[in-house]
Structure formats: structure tokens, C-alpha cells
Simulated scan of single mutants.
Amino acid sequence: MPVSLQDIAARAVQARSRIRKHIYQTPLIPARRIGQEHDAKVLFKAENFQLTGSFKLRGALSKLSSPTAQGRLITASSGNHGIGAAFASKVLSKDLTVVLPETVVLAKLENIKMFGVDVILHGAETGLAEKHAQQLAASGSYTYISPYNDAEIIAGQGTIGLEILEQLNEVDNIFISMGGGGLLSGLGSVLKAYRPQTKIYGVCASNSKALAASIAAGHVVETDHLPTLAEAVAGGIDEDTITLSLATSVIDHVVECDEAEILRSVKALAVQENIIVEGSAALALAGFNQVANTLTGQTSVILLCGGNVDQDFIAKVVCSV
């Protein structure tokens, strides 16, 4: 059955009551320098400061605390959802296995293992890890939990929108990185339900843009998945994903960014704002930078979705020319 944005918004309110004792209400931080040259007010919703370093904790807690998460559970992740799900499984006493691509960032892998869950490495990218987890679940040994194609996961991500509505009286635009669409669908549904005048910008990486291409086509399409600094949003999407219709209904603009733009944005956040984030979070800023000259006098929120990075990566970025 199709899921409406009104349904997701209602579920987000319910999810918040279940998960709020386990998460941080993350700050909305005014930019020090970014946006000034265009006379645009910019604020960062800092999910990189979330308890597990990513917004993914919200969706994982929402799902694992719901009645549908029973028995032996299995999920797939590029890393951040795996960390959130592993944390949720520990605090909620759930039996969980996490399937990760063989290319997972080492820091994320170590964080997942820290919570004592079973880990399987499979495939060169997240889409292949998802298919493997689904195949294992189809054997009857597990209940599969999608990192994005699930109403309770999406509702958990939507709790970010409820916080923003309380933290900021007016928001003209919000920039959200696009992966499987759970964040875009959840946050977008809440904002469109309560503040429909807010413009939703979905930002995709040129090297892996399955959701953006599917929105443009009106149905799920496969795309090439090349290496990207925004590895947390890389990979394909399920053929039956509910995020496609939700994302299509809430999104106002799609912005596509290349690797050079993502790299510059990671560095700008570190050097100009003293904020350390991963490439998928900087992707949202890269999208803002593309259109900033059209946003004079407006208030824009940039969603910093995660900050789980290797120290060597940040050192190389900050020292780059």
C-alpha cells in the first residue's frame, strides 16, 4: 500500500516519543562564514553530533522499537545505519546481524563491531550488501530491516523535522543529501505537512545517483555506482521502494554535485566553520553552494547527516590545495 507524507508525519510524532530518551536533540548552528557573500542566512542541523555520529540512529531506534522488529534481525548498510542499528539492538536487547560492503570505512566497521553484533562483509557497494541481506532473510532465518525502504525507518528520520520546527520560526529552504531516500522522505514529509512553503532541495552525488535518476524517470532505474567521497549515500535502491513516491512528492529541486564540489565543501566546513563531517554531509553544502546566488535574503538549513570519518581522510582534505 502507498504511504503518504501525512502518514509519515504522524508516525514521526509517535516515533519521537519512543526514541527521544535514546538520542540527542542535535543543535541548529548558525554559520560563521558560509552564506555571507550572498547575504543568505545559513544554519547547520548538526546530526554529525548525534550519539552515534549520524542521523541513522533515529530510524534504527524507531524500527527496532516497533512491533514489527521481532526475532533474529538482519540489515545492510554502508556504515552509518549499521552503527545506529547496532546501538539500537544493544539498548533494546535485539538479535542483529549487519551486512556491509567490503569497502566500508574502517572507522564505521570498528564502531559497529563495538556493539557486539554479527557482521558480514559482502560486495563492492551497498546495493550488493543489501541484496545479500535480503537473500539471507528470504531463507527464513532472519527478519530483514531495510535501511530506507520502511515506514518506521523513514518516520524516525522525520523526527529531525520536528526538532527543526521547534528550533526555527521560519525556514525558506533545506538541503538534504540523497541516498536511498529515507532521510529525504522522512524530513521532507514532516516539513511539507507542517510548513509546506519550505523548499526541499535534494542533493545527489554525480558518481552514484540512483534516487535522483529514478525521480527524473518516474520509476526505479539502475545507474552506475562509481567511488565517491559521499560513500554513505552511494548504491542502488529497491525496485519497490516507498521512498521514490515520497521523495517525488516532497522534493522541489534536485541538485547534482561532482567529487570536486564535495571535497571543497568538506574542507570549507572544517576550515571556515570548525565542523568535521563526512563526504555525505558535505554533499548537502555543495548543493547549497551551487544555488546560493539565488537565495539572497533567505534562511537555509543544511542537514549535516554524519561525521563518522577516518582521521587520515580529514587530514588529507584539510591539507589539500
Rank of each mutant, 00 (worst) to 15 (best):
E222W: 03
V250R: 13
L226Y: 11
G186I: 14
A193I: 02
V250T: 01
V221W: 02
E256S: 12
A232E: 11
A216L: 13
V254I: 14
G236T: 15
G218T: 09
A205M: 00
L226F: 11
S206P: 01
E239R: 10
L211V: 09
I200F: 05
L244T: 06
A234Q: 12
L187R: 09
L244G: 00
E222P: 00
V255K: 10
V254W: 01
D238L: 10
D240Q: 12
I215M: 14
T248W: 06
A193H: 07
V250Q: 03
G188K: 04
A193K: 11
A210K: 04
A234H: 06
Y194G: 01
I242R: 08
G235W: 07
D224A: 09
L244F: 07
H225I: 15
V203F: 03
D224E: 14
R195L: 11
P227N: 12
A193P: 03
Q197F: 12
E256P: 02
I215G: 03
D238I: 08
G236S: 15
S185M: 11
T241V: 08
G218H: 07
T223L: 09
T198P: 00
V254Y: 03
V220S: 10
T228R: 05
I200H: 09
D238H: 09
A234E: 08
C257Q: 10
P196F: 12
S214Q: 10
A193G: 04
A247N: 02
